[in-house]
Amino acid sequence: MKLQLHQAAARHPAARAGAAPALHGVDLCVDAGEQLAVIGPSGAGKTTLMQLLACALPPSAGRYTLGDVAPWQLSTRALHRLRGQLFLAPQVPPLPPRQRVVTAVLAGRLPALGLLASLRSLFHPADIPAAHAALARFDLEDKLFERVDRLSGGERQRVGLARALLAPARLWLVDEPLSSLDPTRARQALATLVDCARERGVTLVTSLHQVDAALAQFPRIVGLRDGRIAFDLPSAQVTQPLLEQLYAQHEAELHGAPSSVPQDSLMAATAPAPVVMHCR
């Protein structure tokens, strides 16, 4: 599923009326089946961008098209159907604590089910082998019949990602999927997500704080800062100076002080030549 933003602005879902937009003049085009990571400091607007792409909030300015459709020009029913083709995984998965893991994972299929089938699935999981296979991709198959409230934070986060593998979606939007995972689990989960998206031809947009993981797994990186796109480049062209500029503190920039990027989140710079920042 192709998506395109043109001079889009949006406010954070929790922002007060009259607050300044969290995104300003964003131009972004993502082709169907493409995978990209959005990186940037806290408060850059990454979560607002994910909510905008998921049709969870309308742009306050500019234009957003999904495929050949402008979502916010659709009827309520048509917009609901369109949202059924999207999968949004928030940083904290909305998993009922007393629910069994098998039911939580199979909930990824709910957009494709009718009302009666949806209600039936809450009490009688319809495809246990599919849930088991999805969990196995994240090394959670032994948790199939556990209750959600007995899982660790990292396990709950991986259950939320396993849902995507069963969702009838052509666009996966994943917001900070590694925040509760140790480095080994984080690499495994992200590789699984990217591999499954490629296998199915699903468009994948992920926001990440782990810059090294983004550079290692994604062919395209979008740097977001202060609600604007700072660069949009192939991962091989994202240099250390670009990253330092992206994560520089405002005070350091204003006073010309040297900036630094957290070393636990970056790979060593390997690009051989300087590049020109641009937005697509």
Rank of each mutant, 00 (worst) to 15 (best):
Thr76Leu: 15
Arg77Pro: 07
Arg77Asn: 14
Ala78Lys: 09
Leu79Thr: 06
Leu79Asp: 04
Arg81Tyr: 15
Arg81Gln: 15
Arg81Leu: 13
Leu82Ile: 09
Leu82Val: 09
Leu82Arg: 12
Leu82Gln: 13
Phe87Asp: 03
Phe87Ala: 12
Leu88Cys: 10
Ala89Gly: 12
Ala89Tyr: 13
Gln91Ala: 15
Val92Gly: 12
Pro93Val: 09
Pro94His: 11
Pro96Phe: 13
Pro97Gly: 05
Arg98Trp: 12
Arg100Leu: 11
Val101Asn: 02
Thr103Cys: 08
Val105Gly: 00
Val105Arg: 00
Leu106Ser: 01
Leu106Lys: 00
Leu106Arg: 00
Ala107Asp: 08
Arg109Trp: 06
Leu110Pro: 01
Pro111Phe: 12
Pro111Trp: 08
Leu113Val: 06
Leu113Pro: 05
Leu115Tyr: 11
Leu115Lys: 10
Ala117Glu: 15
Ala117Trp: 11
Ser118Met: 14
Leu119His: 10
Leu122Met: 07
Leu122Gln: 06
Leu122Trp: 12
Phe123His: 14
Phe123Asp: 06
Ile128His: 09
Ile128Phe: 10
Ile128Tyr: 07
Ile128Asp: 04
Pro129Ala: 07
Pro129Ser: 06
Ala131Pro: 03
His132Asp: 06
His132Arg: 14
Ala133Trp: 01
Ala133Thr: 03
Phe138Leu: 15
Phe138Arg: 05
Asp139Pro: 07
Glu141Cys: 09
Asp142Ala: 15
Lys143Thr: 13
Lys143Leu: 12
Leu144Asp: 01
Phe145Gln: 14
Phe145Ala: 10
Glu146Asp: 13
Asp149Ala: 06
Arg150Tyr: 06
Arg150Leu: 04
Ser152Trp: 11
Gly154Lys: 12
Glu155Ser: 08
Arg156Phe: 09
Leu161Thr: 02
Ala164His: 04
Leu165Gly: 00
Leu166Trp: 00
